[in-house]
Structures are given as structure tokens and as C-alpha cells.
Design a protein around this nucleic acid. Structure first.
Length: 151
DNA sequence: GCCAACGTTGGC
DNA sequence: GCCAACGTTGGC
């Protein structure tokens, strides 16, 4: 099993929105960055992901979700009215992928970006700090455990 | 709202 | 294939 971190702006879609969805499941669409997309495609059903709140008052990890459906073509890329429409994406070889995520639980408290930074040495090479603004990124099992131990 | 850090695009 | 210009992300 693999671990991931997925970013979302809580004003748009936060961990509570996922919790309140029918079947507590939602399509994770709109990823328009190739390395993030490649991470989506590497996800397997049952993998776990940190649900990270970005662009908000207190950025950090707010909950845990599970990959409920593996990568499939993101329907938004073909919808002209969508912000995520991509006229250059071939119908027979869609450029962008989505997965379905299912709510697992909220964390007892948000583990903030500040706190993660303060403990960077214990996390080792953590892509959240480095690879720019990637919205979907891998987490090692050791990092997963280390972060949850702070809860 | 600013701006640094990246990623993407497109001219050459 | 280089790289400047441009766009986006996301913390602050």
C-alpha cells in the first residue's frame, strides 16, 4: 500500500465536505499538472492519503481519505464550460486523470505546515517542502507514521 | 494582495 | 533543445 498527500482549498472543498458527501466519496478532478497527474495514475485502490488544506488561515493536514477508485479520464477536460476544459486533450487518449476518494476520518487536530516544517529533520526528504506547488504528492510509510504520531 | 518558486509554452 | 516569457500555486 502507498501513501499520498492531496491538497485542496477548504473554501472550495474541505475534509468536512468530503465527510458530508453521499457515500462520503467524491471525484478528485481538476489536476492539471503532469507530475501530479502521474501520481494520481500510480494510486491503487485502498491507498491512503492525507487531506491537506491549502490557501487558508492555517494550512496543514486536516484528515485522511482513501483511494476508492483508481485513475480514470477526468470528465472536466471535455466540458467546454468547465474551468478545467482542455481543448488539446485527445478523446482517444485523454490527457488528464481523476480518482475517487472516500472519507476515512478527520485528524483530532490539524497538523500545521508550520509544525511539519519545525520537524523537517524527522521527516527527511518531504516533497511538500520542496517540489514547488505540487497538489498530489507521495508520502513514505515512515513519514506517514511520523506525522500521525504527532496527532 | 504580494511575490517566490516552479511549471508550461512557444519562438528560434 | 534552449530559454525567455508567461501563468499558477500557495504561504505569508
Amino acid at each position: 500500500m502507498n501513501y499520498w498527500l492531496m491538497k485542496s482549498e477548504p473554501d472550495e472543498f474541505g475534509i468536512h465536505d468530503l465527510r458530508d458527501r453521499p457515500r462520503q466519496t467524491e471525484m478528485w478532478d481538476g489536476v492539471r499538472n503532469y507530475s501530479a497527474r502521474n501520481h494520481l495514475r500510480a494510486m491503487r485502490k485502498g491507498d491512503l492519503a492525507f487531506f491537506y488544506h491549502s490557501s487558508c488561515e492555517i494550512p496543514g493536514i486536516a484528515g485522511i481519505c482513501e483511494i476508492a477508485r483508481e485513475a480514470y479520464p477526468d470528465p472536466r477536460q471535455f466540458e467546454k464550460a468547465s474551468n478545467y476544459f482542455d481543448a488539446a486533450s485527445p478523446k482517444d487518449n485523454p490527457r488528464w486523470s481523476a480518482v475517487d476518494v472516500k472519507f476515512v476520518r478527520e485528524l483530532k487536530r490539524v497538523i500545521t505546515l508550520q509544525e511539519l516544517r519545525d520537524n523537517a529533520s524527522r521527516l527527511g526528504d518531504f516533497p511538500l517542502f520542496k517540489r514547488g506547488r505540487l497538489s498530489v504528492l507521495p508520502v513514505t510509510a515512515a513519514q506517514w507514521r511520523e506525522i500521525l504520531s504527532r496527532e
